[in-house]
Write a protein that binds this DNA or RNA. Structure first.
Lengths: 197, 197
DNA sequence: TGAAGTATATTCACTGGTGAGTATACTTGT
DNA sequence: ACAAGTATACTCACCAGTGAATATACTTCA
C-alpha cells in the first residue's frame, strides 16, 4: 500500500462526503465525484467496487466523527444530567444555522434508500444510530437513572425528530424545543422534576 | 375539463404516488410513471409541466388525507388527552408494520430535495407539517393546556423522530416509545402526571 | 546490483442504457 | 371543423460500469 494510493482513496472519500451530503446520493454521479477528486472515474472503480460500495464507505467515514462530536457536546457542557443532554440539542441548533447544513447524512441516506432495506449503507446507518442510543443509555445508567434504556430512546427520538423537522422548516428553533423536551424527560426520569423546562 | 382528462390526470397522480413513495423521487422516472399509468410520457407532460411540478402535485395530494388520518386516530381513541396523543403513535406503529410502509413521504421528499430549499414541493411539505403542528396546538389549547404551542412542537418532534428512526431500524417499537414519551410530556403539561408512562 | 517480473495505481475512450423534455401527427367528441 | 387529449418517435445529455493500455513501484534472484 503506497502512500499515493491511500491519498487517492482519501480524495475520493472526501469528494464523496461533500457531494453526497450536499446534494444527495442518487443526485450525485461518480463522474462528478471523480471530477471533484481530480481523478478519472475508472480510478474510483479501482478503489471501490461500485457506487453502492462508495455510499457505504461514505457513511462508515462519518460514523466515529459524528459520535465524537455528540460526545464532546455532552461532556463539555456544564450542569447536571438534564443540562448536559440539552447541550447536545443546543449545539445541534447552532450547527444547523450554518448555511451548508443539510440535516443528518445517515437519516437522509436512509430516506433515499428506503426501498433497499438490505443495502449495506442502511446497515451502517442503523448501527451508527444504535451506537448513539447505547452511549446515551450508558450515560444514564452511570447516573443511576432507573429506566435508562427507555430514556435513551426518548432522547434519540427527539434528536432525530429535530434533524427531520429542521430539514423541513429550516428553523433551528425545533432543535431548541427538542432540547427542552429532552431536558424535561431526563429531569422526570432523574426525579428532580421542576416545571422550569 | 372533460371527464377523460381528469381521469388521465388521476391515473398519473395515482401512479406517481405509488412510485414516488415506494422508490423515492429521483429514483423514479416519468417513463416509469407513464408506464404504470398506462399512458405515454407526452400525456404526463400535457397534464404536468415538469417532473418538479408532478412532485409537488404528489405531495399536495397527500396533504389532506394524511392529516385526516392522524385526526381520526386521535379522535377515535379513548381516554384523556395523554391517551389520545399516545393513540396517534400506536396507530403509526401499526401502520409501520406493514411491509410496504416506507416512512413519511413528506420527510423523505425533504431529505431528497435538501439541496433545493426553494423547491415548490419543499414548501408543500413544510406547510403540511405546520398544519399538523397547528392542529395539535389547537387541541391542547382547547383542553386548557398552558403552554400548548410548546407541547404541540414536542409532539411533532417525537412523531417525526418516530418516522425517521423507524425508517432506519425498521422497528415499530420506536413509535411505541415515542408514544410513551409524548404521553409523559402531555401528562406533565396537563398537570396530571403519574409515573406509569 | 541490476535486469526481469509482478502488483499497484491510473488514464482514455468507450458501451449500453436511461433520463427529462419535445416536434409532430393522430383521434375523438361536440 | 376544431379543440382537447393522446400517441409515435425523437433529441440530447447523462449515468453506471468496462476494455485496453500504461505508468509506477516493489520484489526476486543471477
Amino acid at each position: 500500500m503506497t502512500r499515493s494510493s491511500s491519498t487517492a482513496r482519501e480524495r475520493i472519500l472526501t469528494a464523496a462526503n461533500k457531494l453526497f451530503y450536499a446534494e444527495g446520493i442518487r443526485a450525485v454521479s461518480l463522474d462528478a465525484i471523480a471530477a471533484k477528486a481530480g481523478i478519472t472515474k475508472k480510478t474510483v472503480y479501482y478503489h471501490f467496487k461500485s457506487k453502492d460500495d462508495l455510499i457505504e464507505a461514505y457513511l462508515v467515514s462519518r460514523d466515529q466523527p459524528n459520535l465524537d462530536l455528540f460526545r464532546s457536546w455532552f461532556e463539555e457542557a456544564d450542569g447536571g444530567l438534564p443540562d448536559k443532554v440539552q447541550a447536545i440539542f443546543r449545539n445541534l441548533a447552532a450547527a444547523a444555522r450554518h448555511p451548508k447544513w443539510k440535516g443528518c447524512g445517515f437519516l437522509r441516506t436512509a430516506a433515499e434508500l428506503a426501498d433497499m432495506p438490505g443495502h449495506p449503507a442502511m446497515k451502517v446507518g442503523a448501527a451508527h444510530k444504535k451506537k448513539f442510543e447505547a452511549w446515551m443509555a450508558a450515560e444514564f445508567d452511570a447516573s443511576g437513572v432507573e429506566r435508562f434504556q427507555d430514556l435513551a430512546r426518548h432522547v434519540v427520538l427527539l434528536l432525530d425528530g429535530a434533524f427531520s423537522t429542521m430539514l423541513v422548516h429550516r428553523d433551528a428553533a425545533y432543535a431548541e424545543a427538542a432540547g427542552t423536551a429532552a431536558k424535561t424527560l431526563v429531569a422526570v426520569a432523574v426525579g428532580t422534576m421542576n416545571q422550569r423546562a
